[in-house]
Design a protein around this nucleic acid. Structure first.
Length: 451
DNA sequence: GGTTGTTTAGGAGAGT
DNA sequence: ACTCTCCTAAACAACC
């Protein structure tokens, strides 16, 4: 088993070093080196490309949820093991609403051809067929209701959002729902109620209006990866103990009974206290302390501006160097900021993104990050090991992505969510996905010594 | 009466 | 085959 690296340059360096230590891996017959990537290859990532998209935004929404995906190497390709067209967990194979005229991207009519940006192309469709969900009333957006709710919450740029505001945002940004049967609103309500990730914030007594407010439960904020609701199944072996206990203590519900694997990518920075009497939210104790730590997560500290990334000003190499040299920048930083930017929302980070006084050094910050991601329970030794592994590996995945997609195309990050999600972004994810690689890496103190 | 919120039930699709 | 996620539908209660 050999590590598989996406970047050819890095991979070559890696290969050279590897062969110095593992000459048995040399293919004596062909003289070439075989990297066994049958299971771990991320080469398909490089085949993902994003067409240019109009950066126009809906002023009222502040969000630009339309998408433009295009897998340029999809014809009969088997190199993309799981490259769904959209980041939404419900994006693929989502049942379409019965009775609706057209719910298939491939059946898009010419009259529905996009007039502007906000185009979406599935991997299964002809790249020339584009869908503008903002104006196309016939095609159901490939996002789960949870994702839509999340989008609305982010776009609102407020601490909390009312149900009607969620309705409004969805109908405003997705033409489909303007004309669809109102039953989808029932589904929204159902989702809000049943999904543990959403929590209700009651109105103040003197606050006029109907119904309460809704927000994303910070405890479940990590279920949103770049603004996309993620609730993938996890291999049982990759659960950490805390999450296991969480799941065990949770009532078995089809919604919200699982915690996801990635951390804080949603970038929900405004949170109110949970509803004291909310029965759905009483399951987990000690949220208060956890909440406090969340806001101080080092994840929210970064010197890298997402705008730079999107403009192409992002210098991955320097970041890579920083990471390898132990500087503060981590690739989680990139992700959360990408997530924030992806939402196009002016999140008030200044007051939120601060190193807490208790996190004067890197380890404590990272420890807080771990806790924020439900990773606590590992000792610091474990953390040191995993942390180093993480920062050493991520650049290799990111390089191709950034050079291929960020640099070439100025587009809204909503559109890159799938690439991002496909990459191990956190210790949870990364360690699970790169387990085999890490097992080899443990032979070395630092991967950089091989580069 | 309309809206909001909760709960139950069942089906489809995909993952394990 | 089983489990899980997501969707849809519906009933019901509370509130304005």
């Amino acid at each position: 088993m050999m590590p598989v690296l996406v970047s050819p340059e890095i991979a070559n360096k890696f290969k050279e070093k590897w062969m110095m230590l593992h000459p048995e891996d040399q293919d004596n017959v062909s003289g070439s080196v075989h990297f066994d990537d049958s299971l771990t290859s991320l080469h398909w990532l490089q085949n993902f490309s994003i067409l240019s998209a109009n950066p126009e935004r809906t002023p009222s929404s502040g969000c630009h949820p339309q998408h433009l995906f295009y897998n340029k190497n999809q014809q009969g390709g088997t190199d993309s093991p799981s490259s769904p067209p959209a980041g939404d967990t419900a994006a693929t194979g989502m049942p379409q609403t019965p009775g609706n005229p057209t719910t298939s991207c491939s059946s898009l009519t010419n009259s529905d051809a996009p007039q502007q940006a906000g185009l979406y192309i599935t991997a299964q469709t002809n790249p020339s067929e584009e869908i503008d969900y903002k104006t196309n009333r016939h095609v159901k957006p490939p996002y789960s209701y949870a994702t839509l709710i999340c989008m609305a919450m982010q776009a609102s740029n407020k601490t909390k959002i009312t149900l009607s505001a969620i309705y409004s945002w969805i109908t405003e940004n997705y033409c489909y729902y303007r004309y669809a049967e109102p039953s989808w609103q029932n589904s929204i309500r159902h989702n809000l109620s049943l999904n543990k990730c959403f929590m209700k914030v009651p109105r103040q007594k003197d606050e006029p209006g109907k119904g309460g407010f809704w927000q994303i439960d910070p405890q479940y904020a990590d279920m949103f990866v770049n603004g996309v609701f993620k609730r993938r199944r996890m291999p049982a072996t990759n659960f950490n103990t805390q999450r296991q206990s969480k799941m065990l203590s949770s009532p078995s519900s089809s919604y919200g009974s699982q915690c996801s694997q990635t951390g804080q990518q949603m970038g929900m920075v405004h949170f109110q206290s949970p509803v004291p009497g909310n029965k759905r939210k009483q399951v987990f104790p000690k949220r208060g302390s956890k909440l406090a730590r969340v806001s101080k997560s080092p994840l929210l500290t970064t010197d890298i501006k997402t705008s730079d990334i999107l403009r192409g000003d992002f210098d991955l190499a320097s970041v890579f160097d920083d990471v390898l040299s132990g500087n503060d920048s981590t690739f989680e930083d990139l992700d959360i900021n990408t997530a924030l930017s992806s939402l196009g929302c002016e999140m008030e980070l200044s007051s939120q993104i601060q190193h807490g006084p208790g996190y004067s050094n890197e380890d404590e910050q990272a420890c807080a990050y771990l806790e924020a991601n439900g990773m606590m329970g590992c000792n610091m030794e474990d953390f040191h090991q995993q942390h180093h592994q993480q920062v050493q590996v991520h650049p290799q995945y990111y390089e191709g992505m950034f050079t291929d997609q960020f640099h070439q195309h100025q587009q809204h990050p909503w559109e890159i969510k799938e690439e991002v999600q496909a990459i191990p972004l956190t210790l949870d994810h990364g360690y699970g996905l790169c387990e085999g690689f890490f097992s080899e890496m443990q032979l070395w103190e630092r991967a950089e010594s091989y580069l």
